[in-house]
Nucleic acid binder design. Structure first.
Lengths: 177, 177
DNA sequence: ACCATAATATATAGCCCCGATATATCGTAT
DNA sequence: ATACGATATATCGGGGCTATATATTATGGT
Protein backbone atom coordinates (compact mmCIF):
# COMPACT_ATOMS: atom_id res chain seq x y z
CA UNK A 1 0.00 0.00 0.00
CA UNK A 2 1.38 3.35 -1.02
CA UNK A 3 1.80 6.33 1.24
CA UNK A 4 -0.56 8.31 -0.98
CA UNK A 5 -3.36 5.96 0.06
CA UNK A 6 -2.41 6.29 3.71
CA UNK A 7 -2.55 10.08 3.38
CA UNK A 8 -5.96 9.99 1.76
CA UNK A 9 -7.12 7.82 4.63
CA UNK A 10 -5.68 10.17 7.23
CA UNK A 11 -7.56 13.10 5.68
CA UNK A 12 -10.88 11.27 6.04
CA UNK A 13 -10.63 12.11 9.74
CA UNK A 14 -10.39 15.80 8.96
CA UNK A 15 -8.18 18.40 7.31
CA UNK A 16 -4.57 18.23 8.38
CA UNK A 17 -1.04 19.44 7.69
CA UNK A 18 1.79 17.14 6.70
CA UNK A 19 3.16 17.56 10.17
CA UNK A 20 -0.11 16.40 11.73
CA UNK A 21 -0.37 13.43 9.39
CA UNK A 22 3.11 12.38 10.41
CA UNK A 23 2.07 12.54 14.05
CA UNK A 24 -0.84 10.21 13.35
CA UNK A 25 1.67 7.59 12.27
CA UNK A 26 4.20 8.33 14.98
CA UNK A 27 2.11 8.60 18.13
CA UNK A 28 -1.46 8.76 16.98
CA UNK A 29 -4.19 6.30 16.09
CA UNK A 30 -2.21 4.61 13.29
CA UNK A 31 1.06 4.10 15.10
CA UNK A 32 0.39 0.53 16.20
CA UNK A 33 -0.01 -0.93 12.75
CA UNK A 34 1.26 1.58 10.21
CA UNK A 35 4.42 3.41 9.23
CA UNK A 36 5.12 6.55 7.27
CA UNK A 37 7.63 9.34 7.57
CA UNK A 38 8.22 12.91 6.42
CA UNK A 39 10.39 11.71 3.58
CA UNK A 40 7.37 10.03 2.01
CA UNK A 41 4.44 12.08 3.32
CA UNK A 42 5.45 15.47 1.95
CA UNK A 43 6.16 14.23 -1.59
CA UNK A 44 2.93 12.20 -1.45
CA UNK A 45 0.87 15.28 -0.57
CA UNK A 46 2.46 17.17 -3.45
CA UNK A 47 1.58 14.39 -5.88
CA UNK A 48 -1.97 14.15 -4.52
CA UNK A 49 -2.44 17.89 -4.96
CA UNK A 50 -1.24 17.70 -8.57
CA UNK A 51 -3.73 14.93 -9.24
CA UNK A 52 -6.59 16.86 -7.68
CA UNK A 53 -7.20 14.26 -4.98
CA UNK A 54 -6.56 16.76 -2.21
CA UNK A 55 -6.58 20.54 -2.05
CA UNK A 56 -4.03 22.64 -0.26
CA UNK A 57 -4.77 25.89 1.51
CA UNK A 58 -1.66 27.72 2.62
CA UNK A 59 -2.16 29.61 5.85
CA UNK A 60 0.41 32.33 6.32
CA UNK A 61 1.89 32.43 9.79
CA UNK A 62 4.08 35.14 11.14
CA UNK A 63 7.66 34.11 11.61
CA UNK A 64 6.93 30.47 10.92
CA UNK A 65 6.74 28.45 7.75
CA UNK A 66 3.35 28.61 6.06
CA UNK A 67 1.00 26.02 7.41
CA UNK A 68 -0.35 24.01 4.49
CA UNK A 69 -3.70 22.55 5.36
CA UNK A 70 -4.74 19.68 3.13
CA UNK A 71 -8.34 18.58 2.50
CA UNK A 72 -9.74 15.54 0.79
CA UNK A 73 -11.65 16.22 -2.44
CA UNK A 74 -14.60 14.15 -3.66
CA UNK A 75 -12.29 12.69 -6.27
CA UNK A 76 -9.85 11.79 -3.54
CA UNK A 77 -12.52 10.08 -1.48
CA UNK A 78 -13.55 7.98 -4.47
CA UNK A 79 -9.91 7.10 -5.10
CA UNK A 80 -9.54 5.96 -1.51
CA UNK A 81 -12.71 3.89 -1.69
CA UNK A 82 -11.36 2.28 -4.83
CA UNK A 83 -7.97 1.57 -3.23
CA UNK A 84 -9.67 -0.03 -0.23
CA UNK A 85 -11.40 -2.50 -2.53
CA UNK A 86 -8.11 -3.78 -3.92
CA UNK A 87 -6.60 -7.03 -2.61
CA UNK A 88 -5.07 -6.48 0.79
CA UNK A 89 -1.51 -7.53 1.54
CA UNK A 90 -0.92 -9.93 4.41
CA UNK A 91 -0.15 -8.45 7.77
CA UNK A 92 3.55 -8.12 8.28
CA UNK A 93 5.31 -8.64 11.54
CA UNK A 94 8.99 -7.78 11.74
CA UNK A 95 11.04 -8.45 14.81
CA UNK A 96 14.75 -7.86 15.17
CA UNK A 97 14.22 -9.06 18.71
CA UNK A 98 13.28 -12.58 17.64
CA UNK A 99 16.03 -12.56 15.04
CA UNK A 100 18.59 -11.72 17.69
CA UNK A 101 17.27 -14.44 19.98
CA UNK A 102 17.93 -17.00 17.24
CA UNK A 103 21.56 -16.53 18.17
CA UNK A 104 21.11 -16.52 21.93
CA UNK A 105 23.85 -19.16 22.19
CA UNK A 106 26.32 -16.57 20.86
CA UNK A 107 25.35 -13.94 23.44
CA UNK A 108 26.10 -13.53 27.13
CA UNK A 109 23.19 -14.38 29.38
CA UNK A 110 23.11 -10.90 30.91
CA UNK A 111 22.59 -9.42 27.46
CA UNK A 112 19.68 -11.74 26.70
CA UNK A 113 18.07 -10.97 30.06
CA UNK A 114 18.43 -7.24 29.42
CA UNK A 115 16.89 -7.61 25.96
CA UNK A 116 13.87 -9.40 27.33
CA UNK A 117 13.47 -6.91 30.16
CA UNK A 118 13.57 -3.99 27.75
CA UNK A 119 11.16 -5.66 25.36
CA UNK A 120 8.70 -6.34 28.15
CA UNK A 121 8.98 -2.74 29.35
CA UNK A 122 8.22 -1.20 25.93
CA UNK A 123 5.41 -3.66 25.30
CA UNK A 124 3.78 -2.93 28.64
CA UNK A 125 4.04 0.76 27.89
CA UNK A 126 2.25 0.22 24.62
CA UNK A 127 -0.33 -1.91 26.39
CA UNK A 128 -1.20 0.89 28.78
CA UNK A 129 -1.54 3.28 25.82
CA UNK A 130 -3.83 0.83 24.08
CA UNK A 131 -5.89 0.33 27.24
CA UNK A 132 -7.41 3.81 27.24
CA UNK A 133 -9.75 4.84 24.42
CA UNK A 134 -9.08 8.17 22.72
CA UNK A 135 -11.47 11.04 23.29
CA UNK A 136 -13.06 10.93 19.86
CA UNK A 137 -12.12 7.59 18.39
CA UNK A 138 -14.16 6.23 15.54
CA UNK A 139 -15.48 2.66 15.86
CA UNK A 140 -12.78 1.52 13.44
CA UNK A 141 -10.04 3.04 15.59
CA UNK A 142 -11.56 1.42 18.64
CA UNK A 143 -11.51 -1.94 16.92
CA UNK A 144 -7.87 -1.53 15.89
CA UNK A 145 -6.93 -0.43 19.39
CA UNK A 146 -8.60 -3.43 21.04
CA UNK A 147 -7.06 -5.73 18.46
CA UNK A 148 -3.66 -4.32 19.32
CA UNK A 149 -4.34 -4.74 23.01
CA UNK A 150 -5.22 -8.41 22.59
CA UNK A 151 -2.08 -9.12 20.57
CA UNK A 152 0.29 -7.23 22.86
CA UNK A 153 -1.25 -8.96 25.88
CA UNK A 154 -0.53 -12.33 24.34
CA UNK A 155 3.05 -11.27 23.56
CA UNK A 156 3.69 -10.13 27.12
CA UNK A 157 2.18 -13.30 28.56
CA UNK A 158 4.26 -15.50 26.32
CA UNK A 159 7.48 -13.67 27.08
CA UNK A 160 6.92 -13.72 30.82
CA UNK A 161 6.05 -17.40 30.87
CA UNK A 162 8.76 -18.59 28.48
CA UNK A 163 11.74 -16.26 28.84
CA UNK A 164 13.59 -18.89 30.85
CA UNK A 165 13.69 -21.13 27.76
CA UNK A 166 15.79 -18.68 25.79
CA UNK A 167 17.80 -17.41 28.72
CA UNK A 168 19.00 -20.92 29.47
CA UNK A 169 20.50 -21.15 25.98
CA UNK A 170 22.60 -18.00 26.30
CA UNK A 171 26.29 -18.26 27.11
CA UNK A 172 26.95 -18.50 30.81
CA UNK A 173 28.72 -15.50 32.29
CA UNK A 174 32.47 -15.82 32.53
CA UNK A 175 33.67 -15.31 36.08
CA UNK A 176 36.68 -13.20 35.27
CA UNK A 177 34.88 -10.52 33.26
CA UNK B 1 18.76 -3.92 10.62
CA UNK B 2 20.50 -4.35 7.30
CA UNK B 3 20.09 -7.27 4.98
CA UNK B 4 23.81 -7.99 5.28
CA UNK B 5 23.28 -8.80 8.96
CA UNK B 6 20.32 -11.03 8.13
CA UNK B 7 22.48 -12.90 5.61
CA UNK B 8 25.28 -13.39 8.12
CA UNK B 9 22.70 -14.78 10.52
CA UNK B 10 21.25 -17.12 7.93
CA UNK B 11 24.73 -18.53 7.26
CA UNK B 12 25.19 -19.42 10.94
CA UNK B 13 22.81 -22.30 10.26
CA UNK B 14 25.06 -23.65 7.53
CA UNK B 15 26.45 -22.83 4.11
CA UNK B 16 23.84 -21.72 1.62
CA UNK B 17 23.22 -20.19 -1.78
CA UNK B 18 21.42 -16.89 -2.29
CA UNK B 19 18.44 -18.85 -3.47
CA UNK B 20 18.34 -20.88 -0.27
CA UNK B 21 18.70 -17.79 1.90
CA UNK B 22 15.76 -16.27 0.11
CA UNK B 23 13.71 -19.35 0.86
CA UNK B 24 14.47 -19.03 4.55
CA UNK B 25 12.75 -15.65 4.49
CA UNK B 26 9.93 -16.68 2.21
CA UNK B 27 8.81 -20.02 3.64
CA UNK B 28 11.45 -21.02 6.09
CA UNK B 29 12.23 -20.41 9.74
CA UNK B 30 12.47 -16.61 9.39
CA UNK B 31 9.30 -15.99 7.40
CA UNK B 32 7.09 -15.15 10.38
CA UNK B 33 9.07 -12.18 11.59
CA UNK B 34 11.54 -11.18 8.88
CA UNK B 35 11.60 -9.96 5.30
CA UNK B 36 14.21 -9.96 2.58
CA UNK B 37 14.12 -10.44 -1.16
CA UNK B 38 16.42 -11.30 -4.08
CA UNK B 39 16.84 -7.62 -4.87
CA UNK B 40 18.63 -7.12 -1.59
CA UNK B 41 20.10 -10.56 -0.82
CA UNK B 42 22.28 -10.95 -3.92
CA UNK B 43 23.88 -7.50 -3.68
CA UNK B 44 24.35 -8.07 0.07
CA UNK B 45 26.22 -11.32 -0.52
CA UNK B 46 28.47 -9.59 -3.04
CA UNK B 47 29.30 -6.84 -0.56
CA UNK B 48 29.92 -9.38 2.23
CA UNK B 49 32.30 -11.32 -0.01
CA UNK B 50 34.24 -8.15 -0.85
CA UNK B 51 34.59 -7.39 2.85
CA UNK B 52 35.78 -10.90 3.64
CA UNK B 53 32.86 -11.64 5.94
CA UNK B 54 31.76 -14.59 3.83
CA UNK B 55 33.50 -16.75 1.26
CA UNK B 56 32.00 -17.87 -1.99
CA UNK B 57 32.69 -21.20 -3.61
CA UNK B 58 31.30 -21.47 -7.12
CA UNK B 59 30.17 -24.95 -7.99
CA UNK B 60 29.97 -25.49 -11.72
CA UNK B 61 26.81 -27.21 -12.80
CA UNK B 62 26.11 -28.53 -16.24
CA UNK B 63 23.54 -26.55 -18.14
CA UNK B 64 22.59 -24.47 -15.13
CA UNK B 65 23.99 -21.31 -13.66
CA UNK B 66 26.88 -21.91 -11.31
CA UNK B 67 25.72 -22.58 -7.80
CA UNK B 68 27.45 -20.10 -5.49
CA UNK B 69 27.73 -21.55 -2.03
CA UNK B 70 28.42 -18.97 0.65
CA UNK B 71 30.09 -19.68 3.98
CA UNK B 72 30.54 -17.54 7.05
CA UNK B 73 34.14 -16.62 7.88
CA UNK B 74 35.46 -16.09 11.41
CA UNK B 75 35.51 -12.39 10.68
CA UNK B 76 31.88 -12.59 9.57
CA UNK B 77 30.87 -14.39 12.74
CA UNK B 78 32.50 -11.70 14.86
CA UNK B 79 30.77 -9.03 12.82
CA UNK B 80 27.42 -10.71 13.42
CA UNK B 81 28.09 -11.03 17.13
CA UNK B 82 28.92 -7.34 17.17
CA UNK B 83 25.78 -6.40 15.26
CA UNK B 84 23.64 -8.44 17.67
CA UNK B 85 24.94 -6.36 20.57
CA UNK B 86 23.73 -3.11 19.01
CA UNK B 87 20.46 -1.54 20.18
CA UNK B 88 17.52 -3.43 18.78
CA UNK B 89 14.74 -1.65 16.93
CA UNK B 90 11.20 -2.05 18.23
CA UNK B 91 9.10 -4.78 16.75
CA UNK B 92 7.08 -3.51 13.86
CA UNK B 93 3.59 -4.64 13.02
CA UNK B 94 2.06 -3.45 9.79
CA UNK B 95 -1.49 -4.21 8.84
CA UNK B 96 -3.26 -2.96 5.75
CA UNK B 97 -6.16 -5.01 7.04
CA UNK B 98 -6.65 -2.83 10.14
CA UNK B 99 -6.09 0.30 8.05
CA UNK B 100 -8.85 -0.74 5.69
CA UNK B 101 -11.19 -1.48 8.58
CA UNK B 102 -10.76 2.09 9.79
CA UNK B 103 -12.98 2.97 6.84
CA UNK B 104 -15.48 0.17 7.27
CA UNK B 105 -18.29 2.73 7.11
CA UNK B 106 -17.26 3.48 3.51
CA UNK B 107 -17.38 -0.18 2.47
CA UNK B 108 -20.23 -2.58 1.71
CA UNK B 109 -20.85 -5.08 4.47
CA UNK B 110 -20.23 -8.05 2.18
CA UNK B 111 -16.75 -6.74 1.44
CA UNK B 112 -15.92 -6.38 5.13
CA UNK B 113 -17.21 -9.89 5.85
CA UNK B 114 -15.10 -11.30 3.03
CA UNK B 115 -12.03 -9.48 4.28
CA UNK B 116 -12.42 -10.91 7.77
CA UNK B 117 -13.07 -14.40 6.40
CA UNK B 118 -9.94 -14.27 4.27
CA UNK B 119 -7.84 -12.89 7.10
CA UNK B 120 -9.01 -15.65 9.42
CA UNK B 121 -8.25 -18.27 6.78
CA UNK B 122 -4.67 -17.12 6.17
CA UNK B 123 -4.03 -16.71 9.88
CA UNK B 124 -5.30 -20.20 10.64
CA UNK B 125 -3.09 -21.56 7.89
CA UNK B 126 -0.10 -19.86 9.48
CA UNK B 127 -1.17 -21.19 12.86
CA UNK B 128 -1.10 -24.76 11.65
CA UNK B 129 2.36 -24.19 10.15
CA UNK B 130 3.55 -22.78 13.45
CA UNK B 131 2.04 -25.68 15.38
CA UNK B 132 4.45 -28.29 14.09
CA UNK B 133 8.14 -28.05 15.01
CA UNK B 134 10.68 -28.36 12.19
CA UNK B 135 12.81 -31.46 11.95
CA UNK B 136 16.02 -29.79 13.09
CA UNK B 137 15.00 -26.54 14.68
CA UNK B 138 17.41 -24.83 17.02
CA UNK B 139 16.09 -23.77 20.44
CA UNK B 140 15.96 -20.17 19.19
CA UNK B 141 13.82 -21.16 16.20
CA UNK B 142 11.56 -23.10 18.50
CA UNK B 143 11.15 -20.09 20.74
CA UNK B 144 10.32 -17.83 17.78
CA UNK B 145 7.85 -20.38 16.45
CA UNK B 146 6.01 -20.70 19.75
CA UNK B 147 6.01 -16.94 20.15
CA UNK B 148 4.41 -16.65 16.74
CA UNK B 149 1.87 -19.29 17.62
CA UNK B 150 0.82 -17.44 20.78
CA UNK B 151 0.40 -14.15 18.94
CA UNK B 152 -1.50 -15.59 15.98
CA UNK B 153 -3.78 -17.49 18.36
CA UNK B 154 -4.65 -14.28 20.13
CA UNK B 155 -5.32 -12.57 16.78
CA UNK B 156 -7.65 -15.31 15.63
CA UNK B 157 -9.50 -15.34 18.94
CA UNK B 158 -9.97 -11.60 18.90
CA UNK B 159 -11.20 -11.54 15.32
CA UNK B 160 -13.67 -14.37 15.87
CA UNK B 161 -15.06 -12.83 19.04
CA UNK B 162 -15.23 -9.24 17.82
CA UNK B 163 -15.81 -9.29 14.07
CA UNK B 164 -19.44 -8.35 14.59
CA UNK B 165 -18.35 -4.97 15.99
CA UNK B 166 -16.75 -3.91 12.74
CA UNK B 167 -19.24 -5.62 10.46
CA UNK B 168 -22.07 -3.66 12.03
CA UNK B 169 -20.37 -0.42 11.01
CA UNK B 170 -20.10 -1.31 7.33
CA UNK B 171 -22.60 0.07 4.86
CA UNK B 172 -25.72 -2.01 4.65
CA UNK B 173 -26.19 -3.80 1.34
CA UNK B 174 -28.35 -1.99 -1.19
CA UNK B 175 -31.21 -4.21 -2.33
CA UNK B 176 -30.97 -3.40 -6.03
CA UNK B 177 -27.30 -4.35 -6.48
C1' DA C 1 18.08 34.08 34.74
C1' DC C 2 19.99 31.17 31.32
C1' DC C 3 20.50 27.39 28.48
C1' DA C 4 19.00 23.23 26.38
C1' DT C 5 15.51 20.59 24.68
C1' DA C 6 11.02 19.61 22.67
C1' DA C 7 7.40 21.02 19.75
C1' DT C 8 5.74 23.22 15.48
C1' DA C 9 6.42 23.11 10.41
C1' DT C 10 8.23 22.09 5.64
C1' DA C 11 11.54 20.10 2.57
C1' DT C 12 15.19 17.28 0.29
C1' DA C 13 19.30 14.27 -0.64
C1' DG C 14 21.18 9.83 -0.19
C1' DC C 15 20.96 5.37 0.34
C1' DC C 16 18.69 1.02 0.96
C1' DC C 17 15.46 -2.23 -0.36
C1' DC C 18 11.13 -4.50 -2.56
C1' DG C 19 8.82 -5.96 -6.67
C1' DA C 20 9.10 -7.22 -11.14
C1' DT C 21 11.47 -9.07 -14.74
C1' DA C 22 15.04 -11.67 -17.59
C1' DT C 23 17.48 -15.91 -18.47
C1' DA C 24 18.09 -20.97 -18.49
C1' DT C 25 16.99 -25.87 -17.45
C1' DC C 26 14.83 -29.81 -15.28
C1' DG C 27 11.07 -32.56 -13.29
C1' DT C 28 6.36 -33.39 -12.95
C1' DA C 29 1.66 -33.25 -13.76
C1' DT C 30 -2.03 -33.02 -17.12
C1' DA D 1 2.95 -32.72 -25.67
C1' DT D 2 3.03 -28.96 -23.02
C1' DA D 3 2.48 -26.12 -19.33
C1' DC D 4 3.84 -25.15 -14.87
C1' DG D 5 6.68 -25.03 -10.77
C1' DA D 6 11.21 -25.51 -8.80
C1' DT D 7 16.11 -24.44 -9.13
C1' DA D 8 19.42 -20.57 -9.64
C1' DT D 9 21.48 -15.90 -10.38
C1' DA D 10 21.11 -11.09 -11.40
C1' DT D 11 19.60 -6.23 -12.16
C1' DC D 12 16.53 -2.09 -13.00
C1' DG D 13 13.30 1.15 -11.46
C1' DG D 14 10.85 3.30 -8.32
C1' DG D 15 9.35 4.02 -3.65
C1' DG D 16 10.31 5.10 0.95
C1' DC D 17 13.17 5.67 5.47
C1' DT D 18 16.91 8.16 7.85
C1' DA D 19 19.12 12.01 8.60
C1' DT D 20 19.66 16.69 8.03
C1' DA D 21 18.66 21.79 7.19
C1' DT D 22 15.99 25.81 8.46
C1' DA D 23 13.29 28.81 11.65
C1' DT D 24 10.74 30.03 15.85
C1' DT D 25 8.38 29.43 20.31
C1' DA D 26 7.40 27.11 24.59
C1' DT D 27 8.92 24.47 28.33
C1' DG D 28 11.74 22.76 31.84
C1' DG D 29 15.93 22.18 34.45
C1' DT D 30 19.59 24.23 37.17
Amino acid sequence: MQVTTLCLGALVFGDATGYEINKMFEDGPFSHFLDASYGSIYPALTRLTEEGLVTCKAEAQEKRPDKKIYSLTDKGCLKLRDALQQPIADDKYRSEFLFTLLFAHLLPRSRVRLMVDQRLATMKEKLSELAKPGTNDTPGMDFARQYGYAVYSASVDFLENNRHLIEEIATEEEAHV
